[in-house]
Each structure stands twice: as C-alpha cells, then as structure tokens.
C-alpha cells in the first residue's frame, strides 16, 4: 500500500494547500496582493486537479486542470489587475469586520466543515471524503470573504475562490461526468463576462465600485 500512501499524501497536501491559500486571501489588505493570491489559489487548484487526473486515470480531468491554469491563474488575474488599475481602486480594501474576527470565523468554518463532512461520508471512498471536507472549507471561506468585504472586486474574487472549491469537490468525486467540470469552468467564464460588464457600467455611472455606496441608495427607506 506504499503507492496509495503517496497518492493520498499528495492529494491531501494540495487540497489542504487550497484551504491555506483561502485563509491567506482573507487577510489581504491590498487589491493587487489579493489578486496575486487568487492566482496562487487557482494554481494550487490546477495542481490538485492534475494530481486527481493522474491517480484516477481520468485524462479528461487534465482539461479541467488546464482551464484552471490558463484561465483562472493567468487570464482572470491579469484582466482584473487592469480593471483595478483603470478604475484606480488599488488602495486598501474596506472590510466589514476586523481581520482578527474574520480569521477566527474562518477557523470555525473549517472546523465545521470537517466536523460535518467526515462522519457523514463514512461510506464513500477515503480519498473523496477528505477532498470533500476540504472543498467545503474552501467554499465556506469564499462565502466568508464575500460577506466580509464591501468592495465589488474583492467580492468577485471571493466568489471565484468559492467556484474553485466546487471544482475541487467535483474532481474529487471519482468518475463524475465531464459535463459538470466543463460547466463549472464555463460558468466562471460567463460569470466573469457579466462581472466585467457590471464593473464597466458601474464605473461609467458612478465613481466607485464600493458596493456600500450602492447600498446607500434604495428605492425605498426601511
């Protein structure tokens, strides 16, 4: 079982690395740093998916890994860099609560996801179950990032890290039909286009991409 042990350890290392990078994204103050960490996030995801492709003997997963590498780790961060530059929002990121409480909440979420997933997935194969626990942690951390930031670009980054967690889960589930992996990658593309349009429009009309500024105006007072 020596070989399986190695497979196992590397898969864990990569999935755990993804959770770690998610944490690192939580405490970034600067927009550029956040985008760089998102690129690292996508890179680790790509490695993790490629490793799954190798050990599952599923060559189609290499496509997913390639999409993660080229599209998520290169094109999107570069494009976002340029948007941030053009909009002049590269200064600090506004957070709703302090970094300390956010990190504590993040730790709680990771504990929660491991506590929930491991007992429940007892019957599933051991590789998949730990992957799923890590994936859930990444998803929850992405959600946390979305709610703890005001700025539209960092919310989008949070959403994309959430999508990375979904890809991790989908590739961990052995033999899942290709339909899903492509759809996830594709949805990121569409989502990105939508977001691009949004950012553009918001910039066109107002001088901020701060979601809180949008919140200050409503159709009605509550």
């Amino acid at each position: 079982m020596n070989g399986l042990g190695l497979y196992f350890d590397v898969a864990h290392l990569l999935a755990g690395g993804l959770v770690l990078v998610s944490f690192m994204m939580l405490y970034q103050f600067r927009m550029y740093a956040l985008l760089n960490f998102y690129a690292v996030h996508a890179l680790v995801l790509s490695a993790s998916v490629a490793w799954q492709a190798l050990i599952q003997g599923a060559p189609h997963l290499y496509v997913t890994a390639g999409i993660a590498l080229v599209f998520k780790a290169l094109i999107i961060p570069v494009a976002l860099h340029r948007i941030v530059q053009r909009l002049g929002i590269h200064r600090t990121i506004e957070t709703v609560v302090g970094i300390g409480p956010t990190m504590l909440a993040g730790m709680g979420l990771v504990a929660l996801s491991i506590g929930v997933m491991l007992p429940v997935t007892g019957s599933a194969d051991i590789l998949a179950r730990e992957d799923l626990a890590f994936a859930l942690a990444v998803i929850l951390l992405g959600l946390l990032m979305m709610v703890s930031r005001h700025n539209a670009v960092s919310q989008v980054v949070g959403f994309m890290s959430l999508e990375n967690g979904l890809v991790l889960a989908a590739t961990g589930a052995k033999g899942m039909p290709l339909v899903v992996e492509i759809s996830v990658a594709f949805s990121v593309l569409i989502a990105f286009i939508v977001i691009g349009i949004f950012l553009f429009r918001i910039r066109e009309r107002f001088d901020t991409v701060d979601v809180q500024a949008l919140d200050s105006f409503r159709g009605e007072r509550r």
């Binding site: 997935t121 599933a124 998949a128 799923l132 994936a135 859930l136 998803i139 959403f159 959430l162 999508e163 979904l166 889960a169 989908a170 589930a173 899942m176 899903v180 996830v184």
Partner: peptide
C-alpha cells in the same frame, strides 16, 4: 454554488 455542491454529493 451551494446547489452544485449538493448535486456533487448526490452523485457521490
């Protein structure tokens, strides 16, 4: 996103 995660678990 949450619905997709649920779908993946159903597949599992």
């Amino acid at each position: 996103g949450l619905a997709l995660f649920g779908t993946i678990i159903v597949y599992m």
